Computed example of a mutant assay.
Amino acid sequence: MRKWIVILCALLPSLAMAAGGNVHLDEANNDLTDKASLQRGAKLFMNYCFGCHATQYQRYQRVAEDLNIPKDLMEDNLIVDKNADYGELMKNAMTQEAGAQYFGAPAPDLTLVARVRGVDWLYTYLRSFYVDPSRPFGVNNTVFPNVGMPHVLEELQGTPRKVYETRMVDGEPVEEFVGLKSDGNGELSASEYDNAVRDLVNFLEYSGEPVKLERQQLGWWVIGFFVVFLILAYFLKKEYWRDVH
């Protein structure tokens, strides 16, 4: 009994993080069959995330083959460390000590982040940064308050700020938070940025379980096998019991 209590206690934080607490989460609507989206997501990850966050349980070669990225293109554009081998794990130069010094805590590996947090949480989180001068990097996040991470995608989104509306409550004007809005100084429009984040989250979901589509496809074959076996077993049973009745 004690063993199961320990396991449950270990799982509860992960379940809470995946659920996103009481924060409303937008649907990511990922499509793991969209290779173009996954390729764009890989490009975004390597350009904006990989400097701090590794995916050390993935290999460059596996990513290239799964996402239909030619080897020379992968080596020239997506393998940042030119001393890294094509078949190596996707590790970066950021040590835990350096991460703790720069950000207050080590930058986590992101190989399994989509499975731990959930794709909707990631999609909402990356679209929920806003200006906060009180924070070390000048930004905060509505999904992850007081996060120690800078808004690395700001050049794409622009500078996001909180938007308030004045409403009357009991005859008194009250400023109510209604959302976030970019200043419009980014490289992408609001819809383009949402699509870019979706591509990035799509890639992170793939990284968490590269064989997900194969597993699901295999599952249908297994179900089909059991259905056929059930039919054969039913008629075999009728044949054996024919003389009994």
Score class of each variant (00 low, 15 high):
G21E: 12
E75R: 02
R115Y: 07
G179L: 09
N30A: 06
A105L: 06
G148W: 00
N22P: 05
H151W: 03
K238A: 12
L153C: 04
L38H: 06
N140I: 08
Y193H: 09
R161A: 11
G179F: 09
N29Q: 13
L126A: 08
T33W: 05
N195V: 04
W241P: 01
N83C: 00
L67W: 03
N140G: 09
T166V: 15
K181N: 08
P133W: 03
L230E: 14
Y102Q: 15
F103T: 08
E154T: 03
D34M: 07
W121T: 07
D81T: 07
D34S: 12
N77H: 11
T33A: 09
Q56D: 12
W241M: 10
N68A: 13
M46D: 09
A19S: 08
V174P: 07
E205K: 08
F137I: 04
L110T: 05
L180Y: 09
Y125T: 13
L156D: 08
Y102E: 06
E175A: 09
E192A: 05
L67Y: 02
N92T: 02
S207C: 14
G208E: 10
D120P: 03
G148A: 01
K237M: 13
V174M: 12
A19K: 13
G184Y: 13
R59D: 05
G179E: 10
F203A: 06
A10P: 04
A16G: 14
L8G: 10
K162L: 11
G219V: 03
N30I: 11
Q56V: 02
D132I: 00
Q157W: 00
G171I: 02
R2Q: 15
G87A: 01
T142E: 14
R2T: 12
